[in-house]
Simulated assay, not measured.
Amino acid sequence: MRSNPASGPAFWTCAAFTLFSALVSAAFSLLSLHMAGGHEYALYAASRSVALPLAVLYALFLRSRQGVSALAVTMTLVQLFDAVVGFELHQPGRAYGPLVFAAVNLSLMLWMNRNTDRRSDYMLCRNRVQDLAAWHKVFRSHRAAQEDAGLHLRNMWASLGEPNNIFFLFQIDSVKTARQFIDDPRAAEAGKASGVLDGEYHFLTALPAIKDLPASRP
């Protein structure tokens, strides 16, 4: 099961460039393999390079922010080492390209993770439903739409003694887009189709650390 799939311009831009960088690296490895006439060392190098774009595609399939981050760092290091090789061969023209790729990949990865860290607003929702399994099936079918609207599911609970009274928490990119998602007539239709009897939602924001809170007055 894919939990909390990533989305947003920063994620897709970083993932796309990381994939492009991995494909370029694999293409050069395959070209070197051809020029080396199938030498065993070139075969080993090519097998590792071809594995990288496949790994990026898998992280994209999972929509995993952590996976894309790890592979972005990997491709940054690969391009940096390629640049070192270019300088060692006294061919700076073959080093500048990898340096640019490394700088862009690292910048996009930092942008993606900075956008994630900035989200500190939440939406707490409650639904009382007729049938939990039927409701959950409809709820899961709308995960992609929720993510596209900047709603990132963080947890889900059921009331003790009343398992059909469900609470769930979204971390949200924007209160405005979250309201637009809720006010969309399709959201009401989905609630009706899933058997929601009644519900409510509240927008919340994270408090600072307890030590930073102002002292209460008696």
Results as ranks from 00 to 15, higher is better:
residue 142 H to Q: 07
residue 150 G to M: 12
residue 153 L to H: 08
residue 143 R to W: 06
residue 140 R to A: 10
residue 182 I to W: 12
residue 172 I to V: 09
residue 169 L to G: 03
residue 158 A to Y: 01
residue 176 K to Q: 08
residue 189 E to H: 12
residue 180 Q to G: 14
residue 151 L to K: 01
residue 180 Q to L: 09
residue 179 R to S: 04
residue 169 L to V: 08
residue 152 H to M: 11
residue 150 G to W: 02
residue 164 N to H: 14
residue 144 A to T: 15
residue 166 I to K: 00
residue 162 E to M: 00
residue 173 D to A: 15
residue 163 P to I: 02
residue 181 F to S: 10
residue 151 L to C: 07
residue 172 I to Y: 02
residue 163 P to H: 06
residue 162 E to H: 06
residue 169 L to C: 03
residue 186 R to V: 01
residue 187 A to T: 13
residue 159 S to N: 06
residue 171 Q to D: 08
residue 134 A to P: 00
residue 183 D to I: 04
residue 157 W to D: 03
residue 173 D to N: 12
residue 188 A to L: 12
residue 142 H to M: 10
residue 188 A to D: 07
residue 141 S to Y: 11
residue 134 A to K: 06
residue 148 D to N: 15
residue 191 G to S: 11
residue 170 F to T: 03
residue 183 D to V: 10
residue 187 A to Y: 13
residue 188 A to S: 11
residue 181 F to A: 10
residue 175 V to D: 02
residue 168 F to A: 03
residue 148 D to M: 11
residue 166 I to Y: 00
residue 184 D to E: 11
residue 185 P to I: 05
residue 157 W to H: 08
residue 170 F to G: 03
residue 144 A to Y: 13
residue 180 Q to E: 13
residue 175 V to W: 05
residue 172 I to P: 02
residue 163 P to Y: 02
residue 174 S to Q: 08
residue 135 W to T: 01
residue 161 G to N: 04
residue 181 F to E: 02
residue 156 M to K: 08
residue 191 G to I: 00
residue 186 R to H: 10
residue 148 D to P: 00
residue 134 A to E: 02
residue 148 D to E: 15
residue 136 H to R: 14
residue 176 K to N: 06
residue 190 A to V: 04
residue 165 N to P: 01
residue 161 G to Y: 02
residue 142 H to E: 07
residue 160 L to D: 05
residue 136 H to F: 13
residue 153 L to T: 04
residue 138 V to E: 13
residue 173 D to P: 03
residue 170 F to H: 08
residue 176 K to R: 14
residue 153 L to V: 09
residue 160 L to P: 01
residue 174 S to M: 04
residue 139 F to K: 03
residue 185 P to A: 12
residue 173 D to F: 02
residue 155 N to R: 10
residue 165 N to Q: 02
residue 150 G to V: 12
residue 146 Q to H: 13
residue 138 V to G: 09
residue 187 A to Q: 05
